[in-house]
Design a binder for these strands. Structure first.
Length: 661
RNA sequence: GCCGGGGUAGCUCAGACGGUCAGAGCAACGCUCUUGUAAAGCGAAGGUCAGGGGUUCGAAUCCCCUCCCCGGCUCCA
């Protein structure tokens, strides 16, 4: 057959002739496209194994190991290797699914006893053996019946195979499996897994991996299903990339807001108080107050009106709103008082609605934007509480905008702009992701038309913002669709912060109305929005992103005066007074310590500026300015420094993300 | 809520086959030192070993229950 030839080309148009039956890998070699590590080939827009036979006229592009696609293939392959190692060591283990995920992979197993850390080490050792054994990944296509027989003792695989027909229709009669050929010269003894692929050519193509942890996970993510044991791992295109990733994880651990919150004396979680409830200590309270002052001023400027509403109210309110029915599990139990039941508020919405309905409203008042830093309480399940990121009591920068239908898109657009301004001001840059969430499959109230209208308005406003957005199908709140804004922090992690929600339902449930130009009552549309999301969560993100090195305008102490000897205390007091007179937060360190110890302490506390004062400075009315990061400047006139710092604070300058880290 | 791992002084941690195992460093307190750029010296003090129950001659150590924390799952701002 060698006389038969096929021609392949690369996306740039270069072509090469190959013998018939050549593989994708052969094609890449012929095209000169294998440079460095290539794990797979993109054939006519589909990622395939290097061993896939290719047809005449195919366009073939390499999938490099250091691309997102390449890493996914690598991680998925390592997941198979892990599953093989587990089944080697635990012969009765049933295995479920093992996909690649962001930065790694996992595989779920059903085993009699949960894995121990020692097991993890054994599994990892066995995986290294498999990698060294240079096992080939070979694809085989089977009929459904063949697959059912092959996996007869693997109930989870059977369940997946059974589902194939429904998912893919009559054409989906064929399922694919990948076998790891364990003995290259031998009888074809292989470890087989149900899989779509693609995979790396052989196990020795795994440059670097590590197993990380074991955790319980429900089969198919449903808590009514049995709990499986999930092993998480990570794999990279090089040892260096793996080391960099592990280092990044270590950096994240160092920045943990619970740890920094304690070290920097910002927040405390006293056990006596109960889980998920935080105390803001004086230093943390200053940072929070600056955040609150900024958002309050900004909110007023954008035409919102402040309201204050209480923490508790009669249960009837949440019956009307539907929260009790749809959200009841997350509410603290009722308090019986004078034949009525009161509840802590899990949301501020009904109270803002009551502010609206406190009298008749005219169309002239719309859009009516009510705003509050409202503290809410949610009975989060015990296992989910996580410092300030997931608390049982937290404060939302919550606003509800009541508007007419034709105002809706404009109001949403205004919220998106506002959300971007929040992120930029706090040094988080532009949103990393904007997602429009649509109607949930279950537990949703309202008509299809209302949902469609809300979703359309959100998409229109998102498109108008110029930001790319994605659709999160079925992720909306029970009362309406929403836009979530995500931001990336200084070490690359993504957080969901702002949320903007459209709601036709609560206005109806509360019989809200305004008088229109026609003199008749009309129902307003309601927009819920929280831009920080929760002050506590945003605070935590800010803390982890800056590693505690807050920009000067947020720093609890902006400048600390370090006197060289006791005799410099009077001048130090003058410096502090001078700065304080300009509204700056300055302190004198008059503790009984050496200067070196003081400097070290304040450096660790990430104070933006240390002002060293001794005989020279006192005589000349200057300070030696030792910034948290960068060069020290001696002999700076006190007036000049005060003016500089005041300017920096007023401008809310965000420091470079790396400073002080 | 579920699976797994934890809880020793304010903080970080040692001690754990049951028997001088109640320990260290830092912080806080007292005294001395008065300092020119990331940790001065000395002293005294500090703990129902998360809480409760059990096994034992004897429990920080073994067993059970509860509380709290951590990593995940589910859920979420």
């Amino acid at each position: 057959m060698s006389e038969q030839q096929i021609v392949v080309k690369d996306p740039q148009g270069a072509s090469a002739a190959l013998p018939a039956g050549a593989s994708a890998g052969d094609a890449l070699k012929a095209l000169g496209a294998i440079r460095g590590q290539v794990l797979a080939a993109n054939v006519d827009g589909q990622v395939r194994d290097l061993g896939t036979p290719i047809s005449d006229g195919a366009t073939v592009a390499p999938v490099p190991a250091d691309s997102d696609e390449g890493r996914e293939i690598l991680r998925h392959s390592v997941a198979h290797i892990m599953a093989q190692a587990v089944t080697d060591l635990f012969t009765d283990a049933k295995f479920a699914i093992g996909p690649p995920i962001t930065d790694g992979f996992y595989y779920d197993f059903d085993v009699a006893e949960p894995f121990t850390p020692e097991d993890l080490q054994r599994i990892e050792d066995r995986m290294h053996e498999i990698v060294r054994a240079d096992q080939v990944f070979r694809r085989r296509d089977l009929s459904k019946a063949e697959a059912l027989e092959l996996f007869a003792d693997q109930p989870y695989k059977l369940e997946i195979i059974e589902g194939v027909d429904e998912a893919e229709g009559a054409a989906g009669q064929v399922v694919s499996v990948y076998e790891n050929v364990r003995d290259r010269d031998g009888d074809g003894q292989a470890w087989v897994d149900l899989c779509r692929g693609p995979h790396i050519p052989t196990t020795k193509w795994v440059p670097a991996f590590a197993l990380q942890r074991v955790a319980g996970a429900y089969w198919r993510g449903d808590e009514s299903n049995p709990m499986l044991q999930r092993i998480y791992g990570t794999a990279w295109e090089s040892r260096k990339a793996l080391a960099a990733h592990l280092e990044q994880l270590e950096e994240a651990r160092k920045r943990d807001h619970r740890k920094l919150g304690r070290q920097l004396e910002l927040v405390a979680f006293p056990e006596e108080l109960g889980p998920g409830i935080a105390i803001f200590l004086p230093k943390g309270a200053i940072v929070r107050k600056e955040m609150e002052d900024w958002i309050r001023a900004e909110t007023l400027q954008r035409g919102y009106q402040p309201v204050y509403t209480p923490h508790i109210g009669r249960e009837e309110l949440w019956q009307i709103s539907g929260h009790l029915e749809n959200y009841g599990d997350l509410m603290f139990p009722g308090m019986e008082v004078e034949a009525a039941t009161y509840r802590l508020k899990p949301m501020n919405c009904p109270f803002h609605i009551l502010a609206f309905t406190s009298r008749t409203r005219s169309y002239r008042e719309l859009p009516l934007r009510l705003s509050e830093l409202g503290t809410v309480y949610r009975y989060e399940r015990s296992g989910v509480v996580n410092g300030l990121l997931r608390a049982r009591g937290f404060t939302q920068d919550d606003s509800h905008i009541f508007c007419r239908p034709e105002q809706l898109v404009g109001e949403i657009a205004g919220c998106i702009t506002f959300a971007r301004d929040v992120l930029r001001t706090f040094g988080l840059g532009d949103p990393s992701r904007v997602a429009v969430s649509t109607r949930p499959a279950q537990k949703a109230i309202g008509t299809d038309e209302q949902w469609a209208h809300g979703e359309a308005a959100l998409k229109e406003a998102a498109a108008a913002s110029g930001l790319d957005y994605t659709i999160d199908e079925g992720e909306g709140a029970f009362y309406g669709p929403k836009i979530d804004v995500h931001a990336r922090d200084a070490i690359g992690r993504e957080w969901q912060l702002s949320t903007i929600q459209v709601d036709f339902n609560l206005p109806a449930r509360f019989d809200m109305a305004y008088t229109g130009t026609d003199g008749a009552p009309h129902q307003p549309i309601m927009v819920h929005r929280a831009l920080f999301g929760s002050i506590e969560r945003f605070f935590a993100v800010l803390l982890e992103s800056t590693a505690g090195a807050f920009p000067a305008w947020l720093a609890p102490i902006q400048a600390v005066v370090v006197p060289i000897a006791d005799r410099h205390h009077p001048y130090g007091d003058q410096v502090v007074a001078h700065l304080a007179a300009q509204g700056l937060r300055a302190e004198l360190d008059d503790s009984d310590e050496t200067m070196g110890a003081k400097i070290r302490r304040h450096q660790i506390a990430k104070v933006p500026y240390q002002l060293i004062v001794g005989d020279d400075e006192a005589a000349e009315r200057t300070v030696s300015v030792r910034p948290r990061a960068g060069q020290q400047r001696k002999g700076v006139a006190l007036d000049d420094f005060a003016a500089e710092l005041a300017r920096e604070v007023a401008a809310r300058e965000a420091l470079p993300a790396s400073s002080g880290a």
